[in-house]
Design a protein around this nucleic acid. Structure first.
Lengths: 347, 347
DNA sequence: GACAACTGTTTGAACGATCCAATCCGACGA
DNA sequence: TCGTCGGATTGGATCGTTCAAACAGTTGTC
């Protein structure tokens, strides 16, 4: 009920019989305070339950200890929880380091840049975490130009000399693992269904398949691949073509949605087919689909560490400025040994 | 490159040839400023691109213009985008009103309350938005006791005299609409598969079905319902029992996951069955499932308006302190007319 | 013994906004 | 002409922290 008096540096100082600044030092630069004074001050802080006012600190230091994270409208057909889990991991990692995540909404890159401007001058945000970066992303240029600390979840495709820190999942390693897995099961006729050429992520994932196929001396030319947009219906049609053309025993897919299309096509043609997806979405779980789980939480933690380093929070050793994390193969029912007679079509 | 001087109240005042306070008034209380002075000041603000320092304002007023939103770990089998879309709607609605959303992570109610305490004293948050409230939620008691403004997405089940503002989706209206829809298609043997008794949301949705059935003079006793936890596998087993017991022509389900279990059970038994789900998740879209779409974005907007009113941002007329929004029926393929001979168990 | 160097602590000023009290100014009435 | 009134505007104090410089106390050096 009664509004208790706010605990401030001054009141802690009085309680510990030192000055404001010494209490401040005890928090921000403990090494300059005499050990016995330090313990006395820390006791007072604990006893009074003191918490520094972020506003006052921010006003003086021009640092908010807050990072910005932009939300885009959620597409209607989204079934992933990747975004969800990434934000959660980010928020948790941040608050362990005394930082917080502030959200803002934007519809496109330009709008988002306007928000950057507003948040930097008005709210003194210390940095940003970007997702869904793309080729020639204007947000990256804007931030880099102003020396604003930021990190991207997703590597800068087609811009090898980008200097900002980033974290990404190794798509090629993922499809490579899936391809090897299918080969170990006995498959030799392994096709690939991916996104249209030109997207960094899609091309990367295709590479994993084609490299392993080459390594194994198995065919992976144009006849063994097909492309489709990232939805189940179009994927079904593309898969139907692919199945008729090379009659594969297994298909590595660029995503769970696409993989589901392949499964539907196989059912329609009455074929027995091994399929792998990518993302480990809820759909994959429901379909009992073998897929690749992205290390989302770990990505968030690494991303946070990278941007905090640029902000200057910890000046630990010169580790790499980017991280590539391998996804994990989740084996379920849809990766099955091949038919004894691979050539046989249908029931 | 060169760090341009920050635009402050003082510099705007100098530019407009008035005093600090007049500029402040132009922003916070335009009606006390003489019109011609006002326009002059506003022009200066626009010209210099002035933005008030949130830190300074917060230090003085003890208001941050920030609302807290807690994230819980995302369950592995989650396939909904409801949480995602709610946060997005919240962030967008907030920033239209000059507010921002700050995230924090917590694992349980107690941990979340500790975060409240920290955020209130350290960061001066103006209020909170809670989701996933439950019976006897300690968070609600804690916040209410301290007169902290907050709103919940989800009504206070079993606590009719709760006084805090809330927003919720009308589950009963949803299942009622589904039931009527099935009846209009010609169904009369309509069963229900729900969650175990005792959960507010689950019981509410069941009510919608049973009320309409009673209204239509159709049977809805215990034989026509079954319960299951919210996952596809258990739902399939429960559905199998239900189908054998009353041989329904249609089943209204408490969620999309459960509905998918019913579809699987019907396939296994070779039955033709109309099914409706709840939530309009990606799974429903993929399965071509008739379901109920929750007005998530609108809920977020209303929730924001309610909590801002308690904070005292707008003192508009005395509207209601809670809102119940109706979900929308999304008709797809799984709501089908009944067999000509409902008793026939098809091949 | 005087001065310098160093350690640990304290004091005053500043960050940029709002609150509060005081002042200005033109109009109006006596 | 002067005092009064009320709305518009001004200057000073304040919020709680950190920065920069000054201060006392001890030790070391020639």
């Amino acid at each position: 009920m009664s509004a208790r008096q706010r605990v401030t540096l001054e009141s802690v100082a009085a309680h510990a019989k030192v000055s404001r600044q010494t209490v401040s030092n005890a928090i921000n630069a403990p090494d300059v305070v005499k050990p016995e004074t330090l313990t006395r001050v820390l006791e007072s802080i604990a006893e009074l339950g003191y918490q520094p006012s972020r506003a006052a600190r921010q006003l003086r230091t021009r640092r908010s200890q807050i990072l910005g994270y932009s939300l885009r409208p959620v597409p209607a057909d989204a079934h992933g929880t990747i975004g969800d889990r990434f934000v959660h991991g980010l928020a948790r990692a941040a608050q362990q380091r005394g930082y917080r995540i502030m959200l803002f909404a934007s519809g496109n890159d330009e709008e988002e840049i306007l928000q950057y401007d507003e948040l930097l001058s008005g709210a003194d945000l210390d940095g940003f975490v970007l997702t869904n970066t793309h080729h020639g992303d204007p947000r990256i240029a804007w931030l880099a130009e102003r020396d604003v600390p930021f990190v991207t979840f997703g590597r800068p495709w087609g811009n090898a000399d980008a200097t900002h820190p980033w974290v990404d999942v190794d798509g090629a390693a993922g499809t490579a693992a899936a391809t090897r897995h299918l080969h170990e099961l006995g498959h030799t006729r392994i096709a690939y269904l991916g996104w249209p050429h030109g997207s960094g992520v899609g091309d990367d994932r295709r590479t994993g398949w084609s490299d392993v196929m080459a390594e194994l001396g198995l065919p992976a030319d144009g006849r063994w691949q097909e492309t489709t947009e990232n939805a189940t219906e179009p994927a079904r049609d593309a898969a139907a073509t692919l199945l008729r053309r090379v009659s594969p025993g297994a298909v590595v897919c660029v995503s769970d949605s696409v993989a589901l299309g392949v499964i539907r096509a196989a059912e329609a043609q009455g074929r027995r087919l091994a399929v792998t997806g990518f993302d480990d979405s809820a759909v994959a779980l429901l379909a009992g689909m073998t897929t690749l789980a992205q290390p989302v939480t770990e990505s968030a933690q690494r991303a946070l560490a990278l941007v905090l380093r640029d902000i200057g929070v910890d000046t630990v050793g010169p580790a790499s400025r980017h991280e590539i994390l391998a996804p994990q193969l989740v084996v379920r029912d849809t990766s099955i040994p091949p038919d004894p007679l691979p050539r046989t079509v249908g029931s």
